[in-house]
């Protein structure tokens, strides 16, 4: 069965490493914070200017002056810090943030990503995504494999305006985990109960498939 959003978040959480500073994008990436492996210390950065982000506040404790980049009310953990937007992106560009997890509308086999604009229809803006993808060494995309019309979003070449070029390292969808190699998408794992054939069918790009593809453990 294909993964739901929580399943995608749980699988991505297994990519976290002890001591990582992590930036989570809006949507599925935000859920990753709920599934940090036990005993692991990671610190979440939100680009509006906080390190050491904690869970949502208890009802009644919301503070309008304390939000994440998705404008959601948050809390801070002991050791947290606040800073301005220039310093926030300074630490992102200078690669002090170890891992960036964000959503996408399209990803291509050379690691291009599109997630900010559908010409003539939807223009929400890139927010911090362009800075993050241009700077991070380690970028994981959380996304759906196909759109609502059933068309693949895992492409040979992106059709939408790009957010960044040649930057994505890994993609986790409801169907599969893929790595982007110099030769294109390499299928590493399939979602529980999903066949390799189903993944190939849902993927417009060529998939590199070597040997038996293991099922993800969530």
């Amino acid at each position: 069965m294909a993964l739901d959003k929580i399943g995608i978040a749980k699988r991505i959480a297994k990519e976290l490493q002890d001591g990582f500073y992590v930036n989570l994008g809006i949507g599925i990436p935000t859920l990753v914070a709920n599934y940090i492996p036990e005993g692991m210390n990671v610190e979440f950065q939100s680009e509006n200017g906080v390190l050491g982000m904690g869970p949502f506040p208890f009802e009644g404790d919301e503070d309008a002056d304390l939000i994440n980049a998705g404008k959601q009310t948050i809390t801070t953990l002991p050791g947290a810090s606040f800073f301005d937007s220039a310093m926030s992106f300074g630490m992102i560009r200078s690669q002090h943030v170890d891992l960036t997890i964000l959503g996408a509308m399209e990803v291509s086999e050379n690691g291009d990503i599109a997630n900010w604009k559908i010409p003539g229809k939807m223009v929400k803006g890139m927010g911090g995504a362009m800075d993050l993808v241009a700077s991070a060494e380690n970028i994981i995309v959380a996304m759906m494999h196909v759109n609502k019309a059933g068309e693949s979003k895992i492409l040979k070449k992106c059709t939408l305006p790009l957010t960044g070029v040649g930057c994505v390292k890994k993609v986790v969808t409801e169907l599969a985990l893929m790595e982007i190699t110099p030769n294109g998408f390499k299928l590493l794992e399939r979602a529980p109960g999903v066949s390799v054939e189903e993944i190939i069918k849902a993927t417009e790009a060529e998939l590199i498939i070597e040997g038996t593809i293991p099922e993800m453990s969530i």
């Binding site: 949502f56 506040p57 208890f58 404790d61 309008a64 998705g70």
Partner: peptide
């Protein structure tokens, strides 16, 4: 007024 755009909370 300090309006909150996305009020996200957890239950006690």
């Amino acid at each position: 007024e300090k309006r909150i755009e996305q009020r996200t909370v957890r239950k006690r």
